[in-house]
Computed example of a mutant assay.
Amino acid sequence: MTTPVPNPRSTPQSSVRTATGRSPAANWLIPAGLVLLSVVPVAAGSLRLAELAGGPPIVPDGDRVTAAPVALVTHIVAVTVFSLVGAFQFAPGLRRRHRAWHRAAGRILVLCGLLTAGTGLWLTLFLPPAAVDSELLVAIRVVVSVAMAACVLVGFLAVRRRDFAAHRAWMIRGYAIGMGAGTQFFTQLAWLAVVGPVTASGRTGTMAAGWLINVVVAEWVIRRRAVAGRRRHDAVRVS
């Protein structure tokens, strides 16, 4: 008796799985979400660049930050590339089918990540703080900038020695820190909705919360991937 072979065309899309165990659609859910998270800070950066090019002032705090145009433009361009291109590094199918693209994009992201962290640190240390910037927030920004640079650098060194698990983990951490502005948009919206106008303490708390949320999510993703990897390894050994 011949066992019937399912017709691929009649197979529900949700039952199709890639080699990673995810449906093709799921491979793009995370990159799409990260691009959406980047929309507000990227838009704000574009408006700031237009202002520097002679356009009308739209984004607040222009008089202060435009005093360092080279560092500001470098920061905006670097973090825009880092956030948008980096989002597609989270598509497993794209990484698997286009390894050359993944490697080339990775080199660009390392450079942009270091430029983002370095210019962020420079702007923090050498520009006067805004009216609602507390000394604690300045200190947090310094720590965050150094931590982001360290994560990206350690991730790069890990892939050079072909430690791909450590490379993924450290680059996820660096990317999570770099995406802080996207999450901070929502934490500040929550503050405005519940408390009211943002004060110095409110700005410190909402910005710190944005970075903290991203770091916690990153660590959850890293540990989840590690557990899944151990389970696949154990399954192969048993079989």
Results as ranks from 00 to 15, higher is better:
residue 123 L to K: 00
residue 106 G to I: 04
residue 84 L to F: 00
residue 232 R to N: 09
residue 75 H to Y: 02
residue 235 A to R: 13
residue 175 Y to V: 04
residue 45 G to W: 04
residue 127 L to I: 07
residue 237 R to W: 03
residue 64 R to C: 03
residue 129 P to L: 02
residue 125 L to C: 13
residue 119 T to A: 15
residue 156 F to I: 05
residue 92 P to W: 05
residue 75 H to A: 03
residue 166 A to M: 10
residue 239 S to W: 04
residue 64 R to A: 09
residue 129 P to N: 01
residue 22 R to N: 11
residue 134 S to M: 13
residue 155 G to F: 09
residue 119 T to E: 09
residue 78 A to H: 10
residue 137 L to Q: 10
residue 102 H to N: 05
residue 224 R to Y: 06
residue 194 V to G: 00
residue 171 M to N: 05
residue 56 P to W: 07
residue 6 P to I: 00
residue 231 R to F: 00
residue 208 A to Q: 04
residue 60 P to K: 09
residue 118 G to S: 12
residue 185 F to S: 09
residue 215 V to T: 10
residue 115 L to Y: 02
residue 167 H to M: 09
residue 124 T to K: 06
residue 42 V to A: 12
residue 237 R to V: 13
residue 219 E to C: 02
residue 184 Q to R: 13
residue 154 V to G: 06
residue 77 V to R: 09
residue 105 A to M: 08
residue 156 F to P: 01
residue 178 G to M: 05
residue 34 L to I: 01
residue 13 Q to E: 04
residue 187 T to F: 04
residue 84 L to V: 11
residue 126 F to L: 12
residue 200 A to R: 11
residue 198 V to I: 14
residue 33 G to Q: 07
residue 230 R to W: 02
residue 1 M to D: 11
residue 169 A to I: 10
residue 66 T to G: 13
residue 156 F to M: 14
residue 148 M to S: 08
residue 55 G to Q: 14
residue 238 V to R: 15
residue 32 A to F: 01
residue 142 V to F: 03
residue 178 G to T: 03
residue 25 A to L: 15
residue 127 L to S: 12
residue 212 L to Q: 04
residue 153 L to G: 05
residue 230 R to E: 10
residue 48 R to L: 10
residue 39 V to W: 05
residue 198 V to Q: 01
residue 36 L to I: 12
residue 233 H to Q: 03
residue 128 P to E: 12
residue 27 N to H: 09
residue 59 V to H: 03
residue 19 A to M: 11
residue 28 W to D: 01
residue 155 G to I: 14
residue 182 G to A: 12
residue 171 M to R: 01
residue 83 S to Q: 15
residue 122 W to A: 14
residue 125 L to A: 14
residue 164 F to I: 13
residue 79 V to L: 06
residue 170 W to F: 15
residue 33 G to R: 06
residue 155 G to C: 14
residue 4 P to L: 14
residue 170 W to R: 12
residue 26 A to M: 12
residue 234 D to Q: 11
residue 108 I to W: 10
residue 60 P to A: 08
residue 23 S to T: 15
residue 87 A to N: 02
residue 122 W to S: 11
residue 197 P to E: 11
residue 168 R to M: 14
residue 60 P to E: 07
residue 147 A to W: 03
residue 196 G to L: 07
residue 160 R to K: 08
residue 115 L to D: 05
residue 82 F to W: 12
residue 234 D to T: 05
residue 120 G to T: 07
residue 12 P to W: 01
residue 226 A to E: 12
residue 50 A to V: 15
residue 230 R to H: 04
residue 173 R to H: 08
residue 224 R to E: 09
residue 186 F to Y: 11
residue 9 R to D: 15
residue 58 I to T: 14
residue 103 R to K: 08
residue 81 V to Y: 04
residue 133 D to P: 00
residue 98 H to Y: 13
residue 236 V to Y: 08
residue 10 S to H: 12
residue 71 A to R: 01
residue 215 V to F: 06
residue 140 I to H: 07
residue 147 A to K: 02
residue 34 L to K: 00
residue 110 V to T: 10
residue 90 F to R: 04
residue 218 A to H: 07
residue 166 A to V: 11
residue 6 P to F: 00
residue 139 A to H: 11
residue 96 R to S: 09
residue 20 T to K: 10
residue 189 L to E: 06
residue 23 S to Y: 06
residue 123 L to W: 04
residue 230 R to F: 00
residue 1 M to Q: 10
